[in-house]
Amino acid sequence: MTFLRLASIMAVAISLGACTNADRFGEGGANGGMGAGGMAGSIDDPTSPAYFNAAVGDRVLFAVDQSTLSPEAQSTLTGQAQWLMTNVDYSALIEGHADEQGTQAYNLALGARRASAVQNFLIAQGVSPSRLRTISYGKERPIEICSTEACYSQNRRSVTVITAGAGV
């Protein structure tokens, strides 16, 4: 069974690899990091991206204009690192995001800073750097759309999007 599931993942990976459209990544941010899309698997399967997203937690939140990792964020990321080290057939794209209270270029740079902070933490926990890539969406992909701190706090995030393949 495990073999069959992996085979289908590889097939999806190949088709995604041939696609130059950025929407898959964009959707990851917009929809809350379900970047693995249809191959997320069952949430009851601890080796599935669905489990990673829901049970481990695919995202961490940041304070205003900050990229430092809170104790809560570090705890989530420790879980992410453990999952990644157990499930070596996956790699991860770390998206950095900002809330709308900032200018575009700065928020792109801030998102890059946040994604890098997550990447560095995962590497320090033992994840191979070759399995981790980062991208910033700045304020381009909010998940919450109100203009109050309740939404901003959810948008200042990094999302670790699990992708098939063991990295480069």
Binding site: S67, A105, A109, A112, R114, S116, A117, Q119
Partner: peptide, 9 residues
């Protein structure tokens, strides 16, 4: 232009 490398722009 700006370039972000290892999180630093």
């Amino acid at each position: 232009y700006s370039e972000a490398r290892d999180g630093n722009t």
